[in-house]
Design a protein around this nucleic acid. Sequence first.
DNA 1: CGGGGTTCCTGGCCGC
DNA 2: TGCGGCCAGGAACCCC
Length: 275
Amino acid sequence: MPELPEVETVRRQLEPLVSNAKIIDARAHRSPKFAPALEAIGSTVANVHRRGKYLLVGLLDPGQAPGGPPSRELIVHLGMTGALHVDDTSPSDPYERASWDLADGRTLWFRDIRRFGRIAVVSAGDHQALPTLHHLGPEPFDPALDGPRFHRALAASRSRVKTHLLSQRPIAGVGNIYADEALWRAGINPGIRRVGPTRAEALLGHIRDVLAEALDHGGTTLRDYRTPDRSTGQNQFRLDCYGRSGRPCRRCATPLISRELDQRTTTSCPNCQAR
DNA sequence: CGGGGTTCCTGGCCGC
DNA sequence: TGCGGCCAGGAACCCC
């Protein structure tokens, strides 16, 4: 499931493939989650940025000077099973949810088995229609994000620390996998509602480490995640906590446990992450 | 406005 | 072999 490392891996591959390409046609699944793809017809791709788990494709409208700031953005959220590919041909794919024909004959495809993904076209920077993006916390590697600021962000909610992380408000781009991994490294019980300044700073460091390492390994492919060139990530072989319920903790050998926490499966070590 | 519950989806897996 | 039932889960959405 694409979290920050997966989405950033996609972004890095995608940007050189589609920059400067003009979108001459598009098709989309009728669902309002995908139909906005059609609104990109006629525009030219300026760049591909990322905020949290959202891909932001800068669009130059027809007649807009190349090199200027894009007037609109094509926003793509990959959801659970979304993937983007660029092809010369038009392969038949029952899971295609949207596609954009480029002027040079190639096609950009969005495939998404479970349809948890989402596509929007908005005026540049206008994210009102996507509440989570609108209220998105700082990028994990933003130098302005430090221990005290992260501590204040965590303290702004009385939710369980893991639930708060998944809300994307204290920090952008952390999903279920990397939340479990970072909390395990930090020795923090996912269910606690208050994190002190020292532990908050440590948790921030572990989040950064977990995300950076996953990015180095091309992301985590549990089942469906693929990059634009269809390769898988390799980080699934490096997970210490997520998906390891019942297996021994790599620090203390206690069997890891899995439980529901605010309707999210959560794995943790009952010893290392005791309250 | 924050927080909690519900919903969207379908392949893979399990048990019989 | 076939099939019903269950699970995974990000974020929008609704309601209090």
